[in-house]
Design a protein around this nucleic acid. Structure first.
Lengths: 334, 334
DNA sequence: GGCTAGTATGACAGCGATGTCAGAACTTGC
DNA sequence: GCAAGTTCTGACATCGCTGTCATACTAGCC
């Protein structure tokens, strides 16, 4: 039923080793032999057993994607990007959800490697920042690339966008519209991107000569509910902000909901900006001004780096983009 | 570095075969021997090579999830459910996005099986309905379970919810609120669920003695933009509907946007209902009345069925739930 | 005591590839 | 015409497990 290299070698009249050579595109196979083998492979629709290859050789033709993120949309983008590059490379993708905060993370990763002998690993935030996980990978000499790491940037190859600059751009945009009291909702405490975005917000205020006022800044957790809570507190202030910049779209959606609930007219009474440009952003009312994060492309680029197998860590930075929609406008004159 | 069964057997003072027996929970191992082996395994933190197991035995300890769906949220729920059951079973999950409409689907699946020797496959809609895919799986004798299949229900084990009843329930709810002109937006043409939901809508109208009026029904494609387009056409009718029931939440979001754009006051001027209860539903304004589809649980149950390995096809049906939020209300009196 | 059935263990082959190494068949340079 | 490469090919061991089969021990029973 399933055919093996032996079947192919019988048809092509060569040794199994030669078939293996053709399969692996090794040098030193004559053109004529190669063609004969390829014909036999096609005839049988032969596909080598991954298990046997893994056992005998040094490669498993599988990589793993380790993720722990609360945004399905983000994960989906990541998976799509990684997958696209894997297909091109003829490599399978193992999905490995996990808990970045768990003390067992390193052990889980060790288990994954021991069992599957994956050729490499892609880490997405916030697992990128678990040094126990990185230690484990390095101890075993498994190549890995991180997507948007928050810490130890020099430690491995990685791809990322410029969170600071993006948040700075968005804040500057709000300032340019005329806003002077700009609320900010910080992202999840575990994600370094949260700090970077906050920093970008402050930098833009500084440059514009505006005071940084802690009361206009609230902690969120990247989810809708925390966005609602933060918005409520910001809008309850005696002198509330005329614009709120949330560190991701889900929280921005929470802000919109609170504003609607209070009967505010958007964007006249309140400008709202998000971050990520998830599908959600364009499906809200009003459509959300946000930062387009090139998530899929980041994932693709990360996987590309993984296969390139560089000597020294390489970092690629992809461009973000401000997406201006109807949720931001000039503030109502005082 | 990596330890093998041999290392374990040396420490436990038994043959490698006995270690293998303990690992596989086979019968006929004395309690004392089992404990000795388990201690050695723990001491070495030993984990068997999946590749060697696959090659030598009949199992690969991997299953694949094949999906092709345009809703990230749905896929994420599915993955989470499948994954949860896999973990319990000590089995790895291979992610296999694919194109249900592609003529190469069967070949891709064949390749997947030949290469990885997966122990089983979970199919999610609409790949569930590709008979070429099912043929291929059966030809190779790979167990598979389908999540919400649309066709050939008897052909394999499956899990599903009652789409007809759910759509009927929602429509009845709108009727009970007092609506008489209820618009309906059909889902994607490839998904059988689309037909079932339409049927449920008609059934509820019938039972209430309301006429089915084709002009109140528009084709959508499960995405936001098609929801917008359909809503525009429905609301442009001379005698527009007072409620619109969209076959999923993304399209319902499109309806909300159109209504907002037209300056309508929701839900007074228009009631809107969705289907799925994705995260989106509660993040919109007004929060969306919808049908909670137990997607994660369906996936979990499907995976469970896969591992149970029944003789005859088994079908499990999970309950849906109407989630009533602020997007529906009684119509404005004429 | 001798028989059967059930329990417990190990020796050994083999799964389907690749790595190593040896050797044959060509080139090339002088 | 011969040594020294370079190209091409195959024999065979091997990767780390599990399947098969043989064997030994323990009860239980007539």
């Amino acid at each position: 039923m399933r055919s093996t290299i032996k079947d192919v070698s019988a048809i092509a009249q060569v040794s199994t080793k030669t078939v293996s050579r053709v399969l692996n595109k090794e040098r030193y196979v004559s053109v004529e032999t190669r063609q004969r083998v390829e014909r036999a492979v096609a005839q049988l629709n032969f596909r080598p057993s991954a298990a046997a290859r893994t056992l005998a050789g040094k490669r498993s033709y599988q990589i793993a994607l380790i993720y722990d993120n609360h945004s399905p949309h983000y994960i989906h983008q990541i998976q799509t990007g990684v997958w696209a590059r894997c297909i091109e490379e003829g490599v399978r993708l193992l999905a490995q959800p996990s808990d970045a905060a768990s003390t067992q993370l390193a052990d889980e990763i060790g288990g994954l490697i021991d069992q599957t002998q994956v050729d490499g690993v892609i880490l997405s935030s916030p697992v990128t920042d678990s040094s126990a996980a990185l230690d484990e990978l390095e101890r075993r000499g498994i190549p890995y690339v991180r997507i948007s790491p928050g810490t130890e940037h020099g430690r491995s190859s990685s791809v990322s966008m410029d969170d600071v600059q993006a948040a700075d751009d968005m804040t500057s945009h709000l300032i340019a519209l005329g806003h002077r009291r700009i609320g900010f909702i910080i992202g999840h405490t575990n994600h370094t991107a949260s700090d970077l975005r906050l920093f970008g917000y402050r930098r833009a205020l500084d440059r514009a000569g505006l005071n940084f006022e802690p009361k206009y800044v609230r902690q969120g957790q990247f989810d809708f509910a925390s966005g609602e809570a933060a918005a409520d507190r910001l809008l309850d202030l005696p002198n509330p902000p005329t614009a709120i910049f949330a560190s991701n779209d889900d929280m921005a959606a929470g802000v919109l909901t609170v504003a609607h609930r209070r009967g505010m007219s958007l964007p006249r009474d309140l400008s709202v900006a998000g971050f990520d440009d998830t599908a959600l952003a364009s499906q809200l009312w009003p459509p959300l001004t946000t930062v387009r994060q090139p998530t899929r492309d980041l994932a693709y680029a990360a996987t590309e780096l993984l296969f390139e197998d560089q000597e020294d860590p390489v970092h690629r930075r992809l461009a973000h983009e401000l997406v201006l929609r109807a949720s931001t406008a000039a503030p109502r004159p005082d």
